[in-house]
Computed example of a mutant assay.
Amino acid sequence: MKIKSNGAINLIYILVLLMVVVGFRTIISERQKQISMMYERNNQLLEELKALQHKKEILEGILLKDKKRINGLEEEVERLRVIRARVTAYSPMDNVSGICADEDPSITATGTTPTIGVAAADPDKLEYGTKLYIPGYGNAVIEDTGAALRRGKDLRLDIVMNSHKEAVEWGVKELDVILQRRN
């Protein structure tokens, strides 16, 4: 009898053990399906990440080109600025009119020699040292001033010529003058 009761108990143990094993296998099978699904999702996300990284590289390239273009345009705007000015001419060394210099006609207001390329302006409107490009004249630097240039609200420039005749021939011109960046 003992054998039978032990056999029945053993059979119960075996049945319970089989149920536990089947339960674990079901759980393991479910977990394997979940892991497989997670691997698939992970692979999808990796592909999406690669695509996004590629798009990011493309956009960064476009952005870099645009930044360079914008910087170039900003530098150009900073370097060049067009202003409208009334431009006359004077010849301090050939002072026929007698109004070309307050004291010494061989020295500008900044202490330089008046030569071709020197311009006079109201220093409150254009600082001394400002570089200009004047159509029909060329490059000039503000190094002088004069009473007539400080009148009114309009910008007035006076450019140095070699002779009174050249100054008279220049006359009075309304011009678009390019202010250049100071270096």
Rank of each mutant, 00 (worst) to 15 (best):
K68G: 14
A85H: 05
L132N: 01
I116E: 09
L157I: 05
A85T: 06
S106G: 08
S29M: 07
A101G: 06
E166Q: 15
T113R: 10
L126D: 06
K131M: 10
N139F: 04
G23V: 07
E47F: 02
L59Y: 07
E78N: 11
R151K: 15
H164V: 07
V22H: 13
G61D: 05
L149Y: 05
R84T: 14
L73A: 10
V177F: 11
A147M: 04
T26L: 13
D104K: 03
E47A: 12
V21S: 15
L63K: 04
N6W: 06
D144I: 08
W170Y: 03
R181Y: 10
K4W: 08
V168A: 08
I9K: 12
E75Y: 08
N183A: 13
G171V: 01
I70C: 00
N162L: 13
N95Y: 09
I159Q: 04
M19D: 13
A101W: 03
V20A: 15
M1W: 08
E30I: 12
R25I: 14
I58H: 02
V77A: 04
V20E: 14
N162S: 15
I159A: 07
E174T: 10
E40R: 09
P92W: 06
K173L: 00
D102R: 10
L52C: 07
L46V: 07
M37E: 14
V172K: 05
E57K: 14
R150Q: 13
R181Q: 12
L179Y: 08
T110K: 02
Y90T: 12
G7E: 12
M93P: 00
D124F: 06
D66C: 03
P114A: 04
E143H: 08
K33L: 05
E60K: 12
S106K: 12
E169C: 03
L175Y: 03
N42R: 00
I3S: 13
Q180F: 07
Y133H: 13
V21K: 14
L126N: 08
K165C: 00
D122C: 04
T112A: 15
L175A: 01
T113P: 01
I99N: 09
Y133K: 12
S91H: 04
K65R: 05
V160T: 14
S97N: 14
P105D: 02
I107E: 00
